[in-house]
Simulated scan of single mutants.
Amino acid sequence: MLVMSLALLVVLIVVLSWVAFQLYAGTEKLSTQNASSPHLIPTRQAHVPTSTIANATPVPQVTPPRSDSAMTYDPLHHVVLLFGGTTTEATDAQQTNETWAWNGHGWKQLHPASSPPALQGTMVYDAASQRVILFLYQVQSAGKVANEMWSWDGTTWQQLYPETMPEAVGASMAYDEARHEIVLFGGGVPSMRTVTLINTTWTWDGMNWRRQYPATSPSPRSGAAMTYDAAHQQIILYGGAGDGSGASSVASETWIWDGMTWQQHNGAGIPFQDQNVRLVYDSVTQQTLLFGATNSDATWTWNGSQWVRTTAHGAPTTPYLSASAYDNAAQSVIVYAAQGDSKMGATPVSQTWIWNGTVWKLQP
């Protein structure tokens, strides 16, 4: 009897040791693959890195004030992420590569081990790979654009190296939740003294960019507002800067991407003729908000076929409106802006605005 008990004990120890070894080997293998691969594999994570803002003391505003930042919400770490921008002081305006996070109460500058260069770009959350994706661009010479892609895991930035990369400045980007891919549209390619606008459509599947050839496309433009409308399962594109030909009506056009082609909504109302507007989808009210025109502080919503003015006054309005996102944790739209034009003698001031579904409120 004693011999049998000892035998069973030995077998149990061997089995447990083998299981422990397999778990350790699997963890090491996964870690090595993630460290060496230039691409991120769109799989669910068993372990989510702790955000560097978790134990940080926030401050009221981003400093110094800046324009043209990229911003999106990171649902894994429950913060709104802001990257880069151009500081707006008249005596010391420069590009920055700082990373900031909004936790619902204030801003905190993060200090990741690795950071993208100080370039302009656009940013969205890629639910397929569970990463924030940053698309940057830099004009190297006439006709040559150097684009970069980076991803954020909650702790640091990692550069991606897809085989195919769109070449454009001022492109618009949004994540298509229905089709689990990022859509990038338009922008421009610089020539000797001008920028040639384009109207190409690209999609990102988590590994590489693929050019699409829709039957219908918006005319060439840059800086258009674009977001995903979950209520109608479509991407909405509004406005942008065209080439100036004709009536220059692109600033008030509304286009819809259904995953296959673009469709213009004629007679959908003309809220603004302004290339500086912003689009954000409010998941609580299930409405897409349009706001931020230079000469109007009205807020409009999209009902699937036309624009409806929700409020006549109160929205943030400034030519230096830089970034906006929907904060899922706080269930509100957040806007960061640098109010004031240093070229006109005004001192720029950082502003954070919150939309609670009914009214806009400027944070102290």
Rank of each mutant, 00 (worst) to 15 (best):
M4Q: 14
L6W: 11
L6I: 12
L9D: 03
V10I: 15
L12T: 07
S17F: 13
A25M: 10
N34T: 07
S37N: 15
I41E: 09
T43L: 09
Q45E: 11
V48E: 01
I53W: 03
N55P: 02
A56S: 04
A56K: 03
A56N: 00
P60Q: 11
M71I: 10
T88C: 05
A90Q: 14
G104A: 06
G106V: 10
H111K: 12
A113Y: 06
A118K: 11
A127L: 10
S129W: 04
Q130T: 11
L134D: 00
Q140D: 08
K144S: 08
V145T: 14
M149W: 00
W150Q: 05
S151E: 11
W152Q: 04
Q158M: 14
Y161H: 15
M165C: 02
V169Q: 11
V169K: 08
L184I: 06
G186C: 07
G187S: 08
T194H: 14
L197S: 05
I198N: 03
G206P: 05
N208A: 07
S219K: 13
A224D: 02
T227K: 11
Y228K: 04
A231E: 14
Y238R: 09
A241Y: 13
M260A: 14
N266Y: 12
V277W: 03
L279D: 05
V280M: 09
D282M: 12
S283Y: 07
T285M: 12
G292I: 06
A298H: 04
A298Q: 11
T299R: 10
T301R: 12
V308A: 09
T310D: 04
P316K: 12
T317L: 02
P319E: 06
S322D: 05
S324D: 11
I334E: 00
Q339T: 11
K343W: 08
A346I: 10
N356I: 09
G357M: 05
